[in-house]
């Protein structure tokens, strides 16, 4: 799929040349002629990457724009590449180095920019936000080799795989049969026996409702029902947007706080009915704002 890049520069020639270069490499380009217009387009289009000039209408406009973008929660995670011809300008109120509070950009490239170098940098930062399937495959090999010669390694390998992927993908299980030379049925009988192993990708946030005795007595079933109603899913399912997965768990070991739920690693205790809406909406609001910020789809 096509990635979108926003180009903010006041030099029409540079914009035209860069646009041609990037479009030839299958990126979608939008442009802006100054910082303010650029900021508005960032908000509107949520591009995957921003290329930003330093000196436009005034000398530090690029830096101010970068700061404004990173202060905005909705778009703060979009990487910014700064391009500047300001090598000889020494009168900046800050050092020209990337990744600092005064200049929150990922990398600084000097004008004139070498086209190949620009393409490489762009690809790097767009790649970094997406999946890295090539690298993952290598990690898995290492994981398996670590355990390969130990007795009774299957469960430990499955743990490592699940830690890595969040679940156990089917193709990975297939490869495992080859690496360990055991039948696929042996692997699946173990995966399906233990509650801990998952065959489906988990939701972004995992809501675990403690169904231990103490929580049960103090109203966990009602909480559970309430969460099911709010999210409109059943136990074990994931919401359609992939944001929440709902689990009933045995005991979170926080019986003193009963009834408790855990969202990811955070425990919410002493819950009453009515508390849940607020807690869950905190997570869904947060997700909404990042989604606007243009996650790679």
């Amino acid at each position: 799929m096509q990635h979108t890049i926003l180009l903010i520069d006041d030099d029409p020639d540079f914009v035209e040349a860069t646009q041609l270069l990037l479009e030839a490499n299958d990126y979608r380009i939008i442009t802006a002629g100054n910082g303010q217009e650029g900021f508005q387009k960032v908000k509107k289009e949520s591009p995957n990457l921003i290329i930003l000039d330093m000196m436009m209408t005034y000398k530090t406009e690029g830096a101010e724009t970068a700061k404004a973008i990173t202060m905005d929660a909705a778009v703060k995670d979009i990487p910014i590449i700064m391009i500047t011809g300001a090598r000889k300008e020494f009168s900046f109120p800050f050092e020209l180095k990337p990744n600092q509070p005064g200049l929150p950009v990922k990398v600084i490239l000097e004008k004139p920019v070498d086209p190949e170098n620009l393409l490489k940098t762009v690809a790097l930062y767009i790649e970094k936000r997406g999946d890295e399937p090539v690298k993952k495959q290598i990690d898995v090999k290492n994981l398996i080799n670590k355990w390969k010669n130990k007795e009774g390694n299957l469960i430990m390998i499955l743990h490592e795989l699940q830690n890595h992927y969040g679940y156990i993908p089917r193709d990975v299980a297939f490869n495992l049969t080859r690496d360990l030379e055991i039948p696929l049925a042996r692997i699946y009988e173990v995966i399906s026996f233990y509650h801990y192993f998952q065959l489906e990708p988990p939701g972004k946030h995992i809501i675990s409702v403690c169904m231990g005795t103490a929580c049960y007595l103090k109203g966990a079933p009602q909480l559970f029902k309430e969460i099911k109603d709010i999210l409109n899913i059943e136990e074990g399912e994931t919401t359609k947007d992939g944001l929440f997965q709902l689990k009933g768990v045995r005991c979170l070991g926080c019986c003193g706080l009963a009834p408790v739920i855990m969202i990811d690693d955070k425990i919410y205790g002493n819950l009453k009915s009515g508390d849940l809406m607020e807690i869950i909406s905190k997570y869904s609001n947060e997700a909404e704002t990042t989604a606007k910020g243009g996650a790679v789809k």
Binding site: E151, N153, L154, I155, M156, E189, V190, Y194, H195, R250
Partner: peptide
């Protein structure tokens, strides 16, 4: 060695099977 969420593995013969990498 890690358990994987099976209560029955608290039973000693089941626990041994689990350490051996089986159900």
């Amino acid at each position: 060695r890690l358990g994987a969420g099976a209560f029955v593995c608290g039973e000693e013969t089941a626990l041994i099977a689990s350490i051996e990498g089986k159900r």
